[in-house]
Design a protein around this nucleic acid. Structure first.
Length: 667
RNA sequence: GGGCCCGUAGCUCAGCCAGGAUAGAGCGCUGGCCUCCUAAGCCAGUGGUCGGGGGUUCAAAUCCCCCCGGGCCCGCCA
């Protein structure tokens, strides 16, 4: 492999050869020569594939520019054609009803691809940013009170994929998990352990699963207790209608409770017995105070022990998913080390400070009267932000207050220029409040450079999930199911493989199927996760792409076996256009650097998924067309095909890796 | 009541931000293809009032307005 500096052709050069860039430059220059300034990006965005191969490969509605800039279409077209004709990668240019179409010279494209591949090897196609940034990606950050489920999985896969993608783009990325150990939910979970008389999770169970059960039992029993008190009061006050309504609520809670009891009757009864005659609400508040103010060292130790145990479970699950986290930030640290106190102090002195409902709050609404700030933050016209309460009357802080402190830490501790928070869309208001609060407190840059990467919920058909009630399908179960289905497939399709390989393939394929389907849908869209569909190993799935990769590997292995060497200096590039299947494949690979850059710069991993589907599709079509590689007698043609397989394999492998999927040599 | 997101083929989704050429995939369904580098594959067929209505435009799935349906948010919860 030659040195990067010695490269004659790089992926960046390939990027500039893609139809999008070529056409954008040509049109932009032609317009410029007519005295009109149009940004290349404006043109680039509307380049599209030609609907009919007779028109060409890619085209752009040129008439629109002629009209909107009052220049003659014929004049503009002829200048654009002149500009594009001098580009070797452009084979021909023509206009068809208002569109300008180009046909790509596949041989020139293929040469560029192969030369860039030879120079960059594994780094092929992953064009480095000219402005590398320090970026923090916070993701997953599940409350440590129950196991990770499918919704957390979407978060983890998006976060991990973004991190890998941005790293590949040349940024320096750190991933962080916000350990929420100070919320009310944690206190409920700890309360359950106290009621059960347990100091730790039994050693024979996965800790997050056990903790999830204790949490659900405790939450449900506490809610029942609370509701019973309310019912008594309603009855006494003769509010019959309300009473009946609440009674139905109680019924449903009792049904949840009995389902929970089935999972561990002994544990359930112990907690139920202990909670009798207590006031759970008061007990839980007391625990929260004891923890936040560190009033009772045994309580503090219990909180920390149980949260740590839950995190152990998370780590195990995430490892199985192929997700890693660089730093685990405990919320409590922010309070105990005084970062939160500083925020409160700053807030008190701030001109935005108000007293709202007798509590310290920030009135953020005035910030929104600045239209440019509004625009930068993407706040809609009539949107009003309610005052943000920072401190309860008992002096304890709130989640959002601590999140403000955390946001500052994420920037300040790392020197990051950008922080991306992968957080559920339902937290939109909270995330906006945090950004506004940062600005109000004098951290303008932080407020503007923090991105809420919002994703919608994952629906499981026919189920309603609830952590508090213990109704969820754990990610562990889902992965196990995916792998077991994959294992059946391997058994069916490749019985000849040794067991150890079958296991490895099944594990990789099952995990890949889950990851792939979770990032395939754009984040702001709700995703319906149908276990069967995700594990339906056909087109549009990880196994389909993995299979294409395995086939490419198989060709190269077969070539090696037969002693066929690739002579890089004897490649017949003209072979690229010899049949439409080869040509289509070359043209699609040519687009890779462009798609990669777009996916990274616009934070759209789903573009990579769509690209991979198409690449695997084109490769499989070519593969099955009978245009054999190893049986090709003509050396120039054989060298071309071998080189193409190498490049395709590399692109498949790189992109799968960005998606956190391990490419397989066989399956 | 106010705000945000989503609505495209029976199902799951691209395309919408940056308006243009007969609206694309996959699954499903029907029918084919293993003496040939892995059939987790390939080929052919089937399927759409782009939620509805109005407007802007030479041109609207895409932009604007109204309405309908689904989800979410508007806590001294997280």
């Amino acid at each position: 492999m030659c040195q990067r500096l010695a490269c004659k052709v790089t992926s960046k050069d390939v990027y500039e050869l893609t139809p999008f860039r070529i056409i954008a430059r040509g049109v932009s220059r032609a317009l410029e020569s007519l005295g009109v300034q149009v940004e290349e990006r404006t043109v680039e965005f509307i380049v599209s594939e030609s609907p009919n191969p007779a028109y060409g490969d890619y085209g752009v509605p040129l008439a629109r520019f002629a009209r909107s800039h009052s220049v003659g279409f014929e004049e503009l077209a002829s200048r654009t054609i002149r500009a594009l004709s001098s580009e070797p990668v452009v084979e021909s240019v023509k206009t068809v009803h208002g569109f300008l179409n180009i046909r790509v010279n596949a041989a020139v494209a293929a040469r560029a691809l192969v030369e860039a591949y030879r120079c960059e090897g594994e780094g092929f196609g992953m064009v480095k940013s000219e402005r590398p940034l320090r970026i923090v990606v916070e993701h997953t950050s599940a409350n440590p009170v129950h196991p990770l489920h499918i919704g957390h999985a979407r978060n983890a896969c998006l976060g991990d994929t973004l991190a890998r993608l941005l790293k590949a783009r040349g940024h320096s990325v750190e991933t962080r998990f916000y350990v929420n150990d100070m919320g009310r939910q944690i206190a409920v979970m700890v309360y359950g352990f106290i009621l059960a008389g347990l100091e730790d999770v039994p050693s024979n169970v996965k800790p997050d699963h056990y903790i999830g059960l204790v949490y659900a039992i405790t939450h449900t029993l506490a809610d029942i207790e609370q509701l019973k008190r309310l019912l008594e009061r309603l009855k006494a006050e003769g509010r019959d209608e309300e009473y009946r309504e609440r009674l139905r609520e109680l019924d449903s809670l009792v049904a949840d409770a009995s389902r929970l009891r089935e999972r561990n009757p002994e544990l359930f009864d112990r907690i139920a017995e202990a909670i009798k005659g207590r006031n759970p609400e008061e007990d839980i508040q007391e625990l929260m105070r004891k923890y936040e103010y560190r009033l009772d060292s045994s309580v503090v130790r219990l909180f920390q022990r149980l949260v740590s145990r839950c995190l152990e479970g998370f780590r195990k699950t995430l490892r199985e998913l192929g997700v890693s986290v660089d730093k685990w930030d405990w919320e409590s640290r922010l309070v105990w080390e005084g970062v939160v106190g500083e925020i409160l102090e700053k807030a008190r002195l701030s001109p935005y400070a108000v007293t709202y409902k007798d509590a310290l709050a920030l009135n953020l609404q005035p910030l929104l009267s600045d239209p440019s700030l509004r625009e930068k933050l993407g706040v809609p016209q009539g949107y009003e932000v309610p005052p943000l309460i920072l401190q309860r009357s008992d002096g304890t802080t709130l989640y959002t207050t601590r999140d403000i402190a955390y946001s500052i830490v994420k920037f300040a501790e790392t020197g990051a220029q950008k922080v991306i928070n992968v957080i559920a869309a339902e937290q939109r208001l909270e995330q906006l409040q945090v950004r506004l609060a940062l600005i109000a407190l004098g951290y303008m840059d932080y407020g503007l450079n923090m991105l809420h990467y919002a994703y919608e919920m994952v629906n499981l058909p026919g189920r309603k999930m609830s952590g508090r009630r213990g109704r969820y399908v754990t990610l562990d179960e889902l992965l196990a199911q995916a792998r077991s289905l994959a294992r059946e497939e391997v058994e069916k399709r490749s019985p000849q493989l040794p067991d150890s390989v079958k296991d490895e393939v099944a594990k990789a394929v099952g995990t890949a199927a889950v990851r792939y389907s979770l990032v395939s849908v754009a984040a702001p869209k709700p995703l319906t996760f149908n276990v069967k569909d995700a594990l339906n190993y056909e087109q549009n799935s990880a196994p389909y792409v993995l299979y294409a990769h395995a086939r490419a590997s198989s060709i190269l292995a077969k070539a090696r076996e037969r002693g066929i060497e690739l002579d890089w200096s004897g490649i017949g590039y003209d072979e690229a256009a010899r049949n439409p299947l080869r040509r289509a494949l070359v043209l699609h690979v040519l687009n890779y650097p462009y798609v990669f850059v777009k996916a990274a710069d616009e934070y759209k991993p789903e573009l990579l998924v769509a690209y991979l589907n198409r690449l695997a599709d084109l490769f499989n079509k070519w593969y099955t067309s009978g245009d054999s590689v190893v049986n090709e007698p003509n050396p120039a043609a054989r060298n071309f095909k071998l080189a193409l397989v190498n490049v395709v394999k590399q692109v498949l492998a790189n992109t799968l890796s960005i998606l956190g999927v391990k490419p397989l040599e066989r399956m």
